[in-house]
């Protein structure tokens, strides 16, 4: 494949990955912690109401995981298209 097409295919896969990860980013914070906060509070996690847990704990843990997953998947993607730095 010529480099230009390769780079385009790489970019499309990159955008797909970022979209999925940002959907999760949105769900754990804006959806679970704000929009559906009251609905989730019907459930609980230990002494935490579930909505509050997402707003003050769960969203933050998920954010950390998301970035590491992104870094790992992107490294793989770089290799797959031969666009990695080595």
């Amino acid at each position: 494949m010529p480099r230009q097409q390769l780079a385009q295919a790489y970019w499309r896969e990159n955008l797909r990955l970022v979209t999925v990860l940002l959907a999760i980013w949105f769900s754990v914070s804006f959806a679970a912690g704000i929009i559906f906060f009251e609905d989730l509070n019907a459930y609980s996690l230990g002494g935490y109401k579930l909505g509050l847990w997402f707003a003050q704990q769960g969203s933050i843990y998920t954010f950390v995981i998301l970035i590491f997953v992104y870094a790992k998947k992107m490294a793989k993607l770089d290799k797959k298209y031969g666009l990695d730095e080595e």
């Binding site: 970022v18 940002l22 914070s29 003050q56 954010f63």
Partner: peptide, 14 residues
Amino acid sequence: LMGWTGGFVLLALL
């Protein structure tokens, strides 16, 4: 809590 941590996801991905 969410605002000052969630921004790093945008920073890293975008």
